[in-house]
């Protein structure tokens, strides 16, 4: 996986300019200006569209921003409320459920995605070339499905009347179904009314959509492990389990740390699929932090609470930055960012 870029570059710092650099001719600019000139447009875009909005978000979270404060025609300056928005969030009945939904969903989904993806990656590694390509093509279809389509498809699969999920559950013998779920007749069973079953359907759909990426990445990682290591382990009399734990797992560790962080970032803020499967902002019990923030700012018709929505978004951002801090530090340490 990583080898594609490192072998090409031969590791180290091949891009570092040599000490006695030959200067290009015909360039009127002094050397030191060039990198800044190249960087400036991109930096301005990032500053204007990400950094400044981030500052505004934080700033707005201390104000009470209503419709009258943001209307195009003579808006009233918003009222400064200090930490009121934050106290409101933490006192709200919605806070703990939303936080729980966010965290539990991310935790379960990340674990399931990584587990399933790894198993499929290991499977792909052992399959013959034809069979492996066949499975990868199938996985590609799931992976390429846009989030909107993903939500639509699974919404229909979990439909109470015409959904395939209920049809399949009805195929189970009654005693087994009773034993497992305490019910045997699934006809008309609604999945997308209660928060808990909405999240169940959401987990299934997101795991379905994201396991292929993990599987293909793990496969690429497995292919990059030199075969000699396994031969050596075999000669030393290592069994399959020991070999897996002592060679495969450590060799894949860097890959996994990236995959886990990427999965956390993606699953922590899931919005599109939740919005569509929960039917917009009507079901308040199904809110996670991003949907809650959206609902306060945009979902209430004329009852706009931009400041409160901003404060929720700040909380979400801070949680994500804390979780990914270790990862960022790791990259800064190991990469040639210096």
């Amino acid at each position: 996986m990583a080898h594609t870029s490192t072998t090409v570059r031969g590791g180290g710092h091949p891009s570092a300019p040599s000490r006695r650099r030959r200067a290009p001719r015909g360039s009127g600019l002094p050397d030191w200006v060039v990198p800044y000139g190249l960087l400036l447009p991109g930096f301005l875009v990032i500053a204007a569209l990400l950094l400044y909005p981030l500052y505004q978000l934080a700033d707005m979270s201390f104000y009470d921003v209503k419709l009258k404060n943001i209307r195009p025609v003579n808006p009233v300056p918003p009222e400064f409320v200090g930490l009121d928005n934050y106290t409101k969030i933490f006192d709200s009945d919605l806070f703990w459920p939303a936080l729980r939904n966010t965290v539990v969903f991310a935790l379960v989904t990340v674990i399931l995605t990584i587990a399933l993806g790894t198993l499929v990656g290991l499977l792909l590694h052992r399959l013959g070339p034809k069979m492996s390509t066949f499975v990868v093509i199938g996985a590609m279809a799931a992976w390429a499905t846009p989030p909107t389509s993903q939500a639509i498809i699974w919404k229909w699969l979990f439909d109470s009347d015409a959904g395939v999920v209920n049809w399949a559950l009805n195929l189970l013998p009654d005693w087994l179904s009773n034993l497992l779920f305490g019910m045997s007749d699934w006809s008309g069973h609604p999945w997308l009314n209660d928060a808990s079953t909405i999240y169940l359907a959401l987990i299934v759909s997101v795991v379905w959509g994201s396991f292929p990426f993990i599987a293909v990445s793990v496969l690429a990682g497995l292919k990059s492990i030199p075969g000699e290591l396994y031969e050596a382990a075999k000669m030393d009399g290592s069994g399959p389990v020991t070999t897996f734990m002592r060679i495969t797992v450590p060799m894949l560790k860097p890959v996994f740390s990236v995959l886990i962080v990427l999965s956390i970032i993606w699953d922590f803020k899931v919005f599109t699929q939740l919005y569509l499967m929960a039917g917009g902002t009507v079901n308040r019990e199904a809110f996670n932090l991003s949907l809650w923030s959206y609902a306060e700012a945009f979902g209430g018709g004329a009852n706009v609470k931009m400041g409160l929505g901003a404060a929720i978004a700040v909380v979400l951002t801070i949680i994500l930055l804390i979780i990914t801090f270790v990862h960022v530090r790791q990259i800064v340490k190991t990469e040639d960012v210096r």
Partner: peptide, 25 residues
């Protein structure tokens, strides 16, 4: 250069959904 690369890395961790409100305004 280092500051810019670290900045790039950190802004990738900020959820796009969090910036909905300021970017909309």
């Amino acid at each position: 250069r280092t500051s810019f690369l670290i900045l790039l890395l950190i802004v990738q961790m900020v959820p796009a959904e969090a910036l909905l409100i300021p970017l909309f305004l």
